[in-house]
Computed example of a mutant assay.
Amino acid sequence: MIFEHLVEINDPNNPMLTTLTPAQVWRGLMWRAEKPQDFQEDITELEIIEQGDDFLVREFALGKLNIRDHIEWDTGREIIYDTQPNDQHGGGVLTMRLEQPEPLHLFVRFIYRTSLPETATPGSEAAEDAYYASYVKSAYQEADIDTVRRIRELAAAGLLGKD
C-alpha cells in the first residue's frame, strides 16, 4: 500500500493558527524520532541502538509489539523511517517531508509504503488485508494530525526554539 497526504502547518488565512517556523517543525519531527514516547503514550520501552549525524537506529515496545526502525534524515528537509519487518509486523517506510510552496505556507507531507495490499482478488488471502487498508490509512492520517498537534504543544512550551 502507498498512502500520501499533507498536513498544513501554517495558513496565512487562518489567524487562529500560531505560525511555526520550518526550523521549529523540523526540531519537532526530530523530537518524534528521538523521543517517540512523547508522541505515543503506549510506548513502554525505547532504546537508541546507534546514532550518527544523519541517522539513528532505535527499538521500542508498543505493548507486546516490538519495533526496530532505521531512521535517516536530510536536515531541515525530510526524515525517513524504515521499519524492519518481523514476525509481529510487516515493516514499511514512512517519509515526512517539509514543504514550503510559498513563504507563509508550510506543510508536512507524509508518505507511507507498506506491505499491506490495497486491492486483491475477492476471496483471496490478501482480500482481508486489502479491506483493512482504508482503516489503516485513516489511522495514519489521525496519527499524523496528532503529531503536528504535539509539535504545536512543544513549540508553545518554548521547547522548539523561536527560529
Rank of each mutant, 00 (worst) to 15 (best):
P36H: 01
W26C: 07
W31A: 09
N14M: 02
D53M: 04
L65Y: 06
D42K: 13
E34L: 09
Q100L: 03
A23F: 01
H70C: 13
P85L: 06
E34I: 00
Q88C: 04
T21W: 05
H89Q: 10
F107A: 03
F60N: 01
K64Q: 11
T19R: 00
E41K: 13
V57R: 12
G92Y: 01
A120T: 03
P85Y: 07
L98H: 07
T114D: 12
P36E: 05
I43V: 04
T121Q: 14
H89P: 01
I80E: 10
W73S: 06
W26S: 05
A120I: 01
M96D: 09
A61Q: 12
G90D: 11
T114W: 09
F110D: 09
I111T: 15
F39W: 08
R77A: 14
G52S: 05
E34S: 04
Q51N: 06
D69E: 15
L94H: 01
P101F: 01
W26L: 04
P15Y: 02
H70Y: 14
T114C: 07
P85T: 05
R97I: 09
I43F: 03
P36C: 03
I80K: 09
L104M: 12
E118D: 14
G76D: 09
E102K: 06
E59Q: 14
P103K: 01
L104A: 14
M96W: 12
I48H: 12
L56F: 11
L17V: 02
Y112M: 10
Y112F: 13
K64D: 14
M96G: 02
E72Q: 07
F107V: 00
R77K: 15
T75H: 11
A61P: 00
F107H: 07
W31Y: 08
D54R: 02
V25K: 00
E118W: 08
P85A: 07
D53T: 04
M30C: 15
E47Q: 15
Q40A: 12
H70M: 12
V25F: 02
E102L: 10
S115T: 12
D53G: 09
I80H: 07
N66M: 14
I111S: 15
T83I: 09
L62N: 07
A120V: 02
P36I: 02
R109H: 11
R77F: 11
L62Y: 12
E59Y: 02
F110M: 11
Q24D: 12
L20T: 01
N66C: 09
I49C: 04
H105N: 13
E72M: 00
V93T: 15
I71A: 03
A33M: 14
Q51W: 05
T83M: 15
F60D: 05
D87Q: 06
I79Y: 12
I43E: 04
L46W: 08
P103M: 05
